[in-house]
Write a protein that binds this DNA or RNA. Structure first.
Length: 499
RNA sequence: GGCCCCAUAGUGAAGCGGUCUAACACACCAGCCUUUCACGCUGGCGACACGGGUUCGAAUCCCGUUGGGGUCACCA
């Protein structure tokens, strides 16, 4: 083992929102850095000028923060490397390129995109692999000057050597490719902007990155990058390529086939803790006897290792994510859940933002969440589950069919009588969940009814649905007045149905 | 198509040459618990892609086939 300090990085493009894949890669980098007392660096890959807007990097930062990750160096927090946006580092790339040019390890290429396009087409027609022919590889100074006179702006290409290009991948082992497949590739475009593979190498070297941990789609980028390291005579970082996240149809995870941005997951009611936990297990697991899968960031930090990363791509299974999300919801106290659920309640129109700001409203929500948080798979389900606490309904909306339906063949008359009885009891008995529960249990015995048969019509009458949290606590939270009102509404509905 | 990577149940996966009549988790099914739902508990279903080697012995090593994925730009 060497003593080089561990420095890892994540280099997202500022697309306005953080992709789950980016989050997972960031997580692994973060865990690795923390474990080795190293630094986790955030660098913004914004050389694609057409695509990037200044504010779009904030979305990426926000996403990473939402999921709980922080970085030691980056454009927003600074650090010893100074500039953490590639767009700010253009001079650096050009300077290094001069070095290559001076040593004749790179050369100017005056071919136009059109010419290259034609060349590629011809090669493909001949069933050859398209690669640069090397047309400009040996231009004389005079020839170059001539082209310059014509107004042509050169790009810079690396002279690609012969032989195998290889690297040792921490998760995959030895990987190699024949350099002959490559052709001299562009490192600086004719507009002076560096190409991704080149800028990445310069930055990684400049920032003393020790381990490049990234998604497997970058394996093929690694070959040209290796060549660039060689050209400069720089020591390479260690590489680790992580398996891809897949759609259920096994293609690379994509927007059209489900949520991919952290913002989308937030809107769907996923907890960042759960998403993080889930992502951690796509492409890695602690192995052996350690089968615990519900792990916090700190717990992941104790167990993570690059060596235990898996080799084959993993389908992003939202069913399991939902399960994990439910587990994380249960881990939180109702009080902690309240502020997270409130936005969903407001969005559903159950509360106005002003109402939601009152202590009464939040306290009430907390009480409701206490009741349902064991049966809440996602935050966004809360408004629907809690709807009958926030809104009433009309006579025409009473679900009389469900009130009357029962497996024991109790007649509508009997059901109606039970509803009337319930009305009487609830009006006169002390209005407390425990007490009412006892009272109704006794009644069931007295009537010779199964408790479930007795309670189901009441449940539907009071909540207007067949599924609810335990009935008596529900009543208590609803308050006596509303319960009685709903009971009479239900009775009216039943009478109407019987007529 | 070239190149690269990968291949255990529907999904995530353990397994690192014998202890594998192959774990665990999600999903699914059945039962228990129960006031409906959910939770929880018990049990069940279900896999080493195929074919050759190597070896006393292979899910584990090698080769091939098939399948899947990634990537092939003056995009990142």
């Amino acid at each position: 083992m060497d003593n080089t300090p561990v420095r890892v990085r994540i280099a997202p493009s500022p697309t306005g929102n953080c992709h789950v894949g980016t989050a997972r890669t960031a997580l692994y980098n973060y865990l690795f850095a923390k474990q080795h007392n190293g630094s986790f660096i955030l660098r913004v890959d914004d050389t694609d000028i057409r695509r990037n807007t200044p504010e779009s990097e904030q979305g990426v930062f926000d996403g990473l923060k939402w999921i709980g990750l922080t970085w030691d160096e980056g454009p927003d927090v600074g650090g010893p490397c100074g500039l953490y946006r590639q767009s700010e580092r253009l001079d650096i790339y050009l300077q290094y390129a001069q070095q290559l040019l001076a040593q004749d390890l790179a050369y100017e290429c005056f071919c136009t995109p059109q010419e290259l396009e034609v060349e590629r087409k011809e090669q493909t027609a001949r069933k050859e692999d398209p690669r640069y022919s090397g047309k400009c590889a040996n231009l004389t100074p005079e020839e170059r000057e001539e082209r310059r006179q014509q107004g042509l702006k050169p790009s810079l290409r690396l002279r690609v050597r012969k032989g195998a290009v290889a690297f040792e991948d921490i998760v995959r082992g030895h990987v190699e490719q024949d350099a002959a497949l490559m052709g001299d590739f562009v490192i600086i475009k004719s507009n002076g902007i560096p190409v991704y593979n080149y800028a990445t190498v310069i930055d990684d070297h400049d920032m003393a990155i020790s381990h490049v941990i990234r998604a497997a789609e970058h394996i093929s980028n690694t070959f040209p990058q290796v060549l660039i390291y060689e050209a400069f005579g720089w020591e390479m970082p260690h590489f680790a390529h992580l398996v891809l996240m897949l759609n259920p149809d096994k293609t690379k995870i994509s927007k059209r086939k489900g949520a991919v941005y952290l913002g989308e997951f937030a809107e769907l009611g996923y907890l960042p803790e759960a998403l993080l936990n889930f992502c951690a297990f796509l492409g890695w697991n602690p192995g052996g006897e350690d089968t615990q899968e519900l792990l916090s960031l700190d717990e992941l930090q104790e167990r993570f290792s690059l060596e235990r990363c898996t080799h084959s791509n993993a389908v992003f299974d939202t069913v399991k994510l939902d399960w994990m999300n439910g587990m994380w919801i249960r881990r939180l106290a109702a009080e902690e859940l309240t502020p997270r659920v409130l936005p969903f309640i407001i969005k559903a129109g159950h509360l106005t933002p002003q109402e939601a700001a009152t202590p009464e409203a939040t306290a009430y929500l907390t009480a409701l969440l206490n009741l349902i948080h064991e049966r809440l798979p996602r935050l966004d389900a809360a408004p629907e589950i809690l709807a009958y606490f926030y809104q009433d309904w009309q006579l025409s909306e009473v679900d009389t069919t469900s009130i009357l339906a029962n497996k024991s063949n109790h007649t509508p008359e009997e059901i109606l009588r039970v509803l009337q009885l319930a009305y009487e009891l609830i009006s006169h008995e002390p209005f407390a969940a425990h007490h009412l529960e006892e009272v109704f249990k006794q009644q069931a015995v007295a009537l010779g009814w199964k408790l479930g048969d007795l309670l189901m019509p009441l449940r539907v009458a009071i909540t207007n649905r067949k599924v609810s949290p335990p009935l008596f606590t529900t009543m208590e939270l609803l308050n006596q007045e509303r319960v009685l009102a709903r009971l009479s509404l239900a009775m009216a509905g039943v009478k109407e149905a019987m007529a």
